[in-house]
């Protein structure tokens, strides 16, 4: 042993991510500097953006906008959005701290989107695919009637046209403001996945930070091949709920992509800059 002992590299536990706060942050934040939700480092926004929205310090993959996702995965100008006119309805007249209707209008204005889902048809190099992309900035990418309907239609398109379907998940789970109907979207989507899979058409899911609740427990974990982004939080119950239930501290790295890989729940972790190539390689191998 030398005089200067090499200090064992300290593994910093990741901070528990508060979904509701993340949503609010994702919805407005426009400042020059951003704080990494994982390592708490203060980062220059431009630098993070240049780095494909990946923290240069700890490699945490920030949620990206659907536009960025599309430009990262699909060939330029190949993506055609479908079913863009479906809009949510406040059929329960739900009111929490704010009426759902008001919340919808507000979010629609700030995100310039009707709901938390963009779907369409596009090309990855020369392979044509159908894709559904969650928009986390719209009410935390929550799964409601609109999201469920759009994913189902894309799956039905894939089934009809015999083209692979990709789903990019980023969601806090079911949309409570739509009550039982949001739960029913899980079964609706799963039914459509059953039809797609029974025809032997590949279904691939990409789980990004965070993918939780009803989205994981339906379209997320049903992927033939499941890819995750590094350090993405993936799980069924949220960490806060688990902690409150079992009254214990959660192990470090719990519910992160690496944890799921270790437990055999996902096939691979691909960093954002290798994602397109990785998906292409898989598709070219199996088609």
């Amino acid at each position: 042993m030398g005089f200067f002992r090499k200090k064992e590299k300290e593994i910093k536990p990741h901070k528990q991510i508060d979904i509701q706060r993340e949503i609010k942050k994702a919805e407005k934040d426009e400042s020059l500097w951003i704080k990494c939700s994982s390592c708490q480092e203060l980062l220059y926004r431009k630098e993070v953006e240049r780095n494909l929205h990946v923290c240069p310090k700890c490699y945490y993959h920030f949620p990206v906008s659907t536009e960025t996702r599309i430009s990262l995965i699909f060939e330029k100008n190949s993506f055609v959005e479908l079913y863009g006119k479906i809009r949510p309805v406040d059929f329960l007249k739900f009111k929490d701290t704010k009426p759902y209707k008001a919340r919808l209008i507000e979010t629609q204005e700030s995100t310039k989107r009707l709901d938390a889902m963009v779907c369409g048809k596009g090309k990855i190099k020369d392979i044509e695919v159908y894709a559904a992309i969650f928009d986390f900035s719209f009410m935390g990418g929550s799964l409601g009637s609109v999201v469920g309907e759009k994913v189902t239609r894309i799956l039905e398109d894939g089934t009809r046209e015999k083209k692979p379907v990709l789903v990019f998940c980023a969601s806090g789970g079911a949309r409570m403001q739509e009550g039982i109907m949001s739960l029913m979207q899980m079964s609706k989507v799963s039914g459509a996945i059953y039809r797609l899979k029974s025809l032997g058409i590949p279904y691939i899911t990409v789980l990004t930070d965070p993918t939780l609740g009803g989205v994981t427990a339906s379209m997320g974990m049903l992927g033939d091949i499941i890819i995750a982004e590094p350090k993405a939080m993936i799980g069924f119950a949220g960490p806060r709920v688990i902690k409150d239930t079992i009254k214990e501290e959660l192990p470090s790295g719990f519910q992160r992509a690496e944890f799921l890989l270790e437990h055999g729940m996902i096939d691979m972790i691909l960093p954002r800059k290798e994602l397109k190539q990785g998906i292409y390689r898989i598709l070219s191998l199996i088609l």
Binding site: M186, S190, T216, M219, G220, L222, T245, F254
Partner: peptide
């Protein structure tokens, strides 16, 4: 479904999704 460490480790989400899927 039970929210716990073991449940998550052993794939609570996958188990539920598979059940729903299989019922179709």
């Amino acid at each position: 479904a039970f929210p716990g460490i073991g449940a998550e480790e052993r794939g609570q989400a996958e188990a539920i999704a598979s059940c729903i899927f299989f019922m179709f």
